[in-house]
Design a protein around this nucleic acid. Structure first.
Lengths: 204, 204
DNA sequence: TTAATATATGGACCAGCGGTCAAGTTTGTC
DNA sequence: GACAAACTTGACCGCTGGTCCATATATTAA
């Protein structure tokens, strides 16, 4: 009995190195090319590994994009859970929502192609209408947050539905275009208007 | 000088027959299968024509989906332009918007797979990030309508942006799922809440 | 150090996709 | 009938995401 009692089993050193190489290569390619041009094979080549390795590590194209996304979202996640207001706990739901959605817009703008690629991956995958419908943990957690804040401010509405609607915005083509161009302000302003209308609150 | 003075040139009889056969076959397949399983080749086979014919008639997979969509949208278009209120002219912007969006949701529910297929077609096409970004005339017309009504009720906000956001909802996976399942009411209710928040109006 | 074993690797291979095109067929017109 | 224009066709192309497994490598136990 050594260190493996509680660990599933460690990832081998070379495997970990390759995982990083693949993630960094995908990142780089997505910075330079539209998502539908970033095929798994190209990522593999850029990372200096075989195509099979990518699938080994990430399961599928979707899995790769998800992993990349998770990396980026981790920071925001933490700020929401324990950071200072208005993003973190302490402010009213309207302010928190506006702040959160602005942050999401900014994140999407910084990673425009990634967002699109992730969407593209889902749509392209063999089982678009299968089990893993919204098994995307990032989406689930964003949705829970938004939905919770809406319910807090407006217990009379279908908060889950409206949360889906607000987040849906991110995948809209014309808006994704703005984001890819690095202009999240317009989206953030749109969110603010809708939220203020929904939850009341001063301003306006 | 005969009948061809003003006509571009009529479509040949066999061509018109095939066009219909293709549209009906695609319709039928989309009723029964998820969009990513409805390939152009399958549509062609079901219609009893060669694959090339489909491309000849519709240019691309996207073109085919667009044609199908246009068929369905024509009726709504007309009701909006000259039908009775609250859909047609005559009612206040909030009522018209709520009515219009409910109608769009219903249409999307009746044609759930088609909507998804259309989206799928755009994302999959070779030039996702090209010119024809929103050359989709149906989307453009819906957007113009929504955006106009918002501007009418709230001249102080970025109506075009918010219109994009509202319409973006339709392509959101979890919501598209509801629609495919034939349940547009929840979406319509969500629209109503957001619009009332945006444009004021009694209710609440 | 070595032997044993679990893990990782890479690229040929697969079925399928959207899309093209040259050759053959059908239609409408005079 | 003859003729040109319009239409049809399916083999073909490049490419995709995903599978497979013989081979190579890291790790651990002896």
């Amino acid at each position: 009995m050594g260190k493996n009692d509680r660990m599933e089993r460690r990832e081998r050193a070379d495997a970990a190195r390759n995982r990083q190489a693949i993630l960094r290569a995908a990142e780089e390619l997505l910075r330079r090319h539209p998502p539908e041009q970033v095929s798994v094979e190209r990522v593999a080549a850029a990372a200096g590994v075989g195509k099979g390795t990518v699938f080994h590590r990430f399961g599928s194209r979707t899995g790769l994009m998800l992993a990349l996304m998770a990396e980026r979202a981790r920071e925001l996640e933490q700020a929401v859970a324990e950071g200072p207001p208005p993003l973190g706990p302490g402010a009213g739901p309207a302010e928190r929502l506006v702040a959160f959605l602005a942050e999401v817009a900014a994140l999407a703008a910084r990673n425009g192609n990634l967002m699109a690629a992730h969407e593209h991956a889902i749509v392209t995958s063999k089982s678009a209408a299968e089990q893993p419908r919204e098994a995307n943990p990032i989406y689930v957690s964003w949705h829970r947050h938004v939905s919770g804040l809406i319910a807090e401010g407006r217990p009379d509405v279908d908060a889950e539905q409206i949360a889906h609607m607000l987040l849906g915005t991110l995948h809209m083509e014309p808006i994704a275009g703005q984001l890819r161009a690095g202009k999240p302000e317009r989206l953030a302003a749109g969110f603010a208007v809708l939220i203020r209308g929904l939850l009341g609150e001063g301003g306006r």
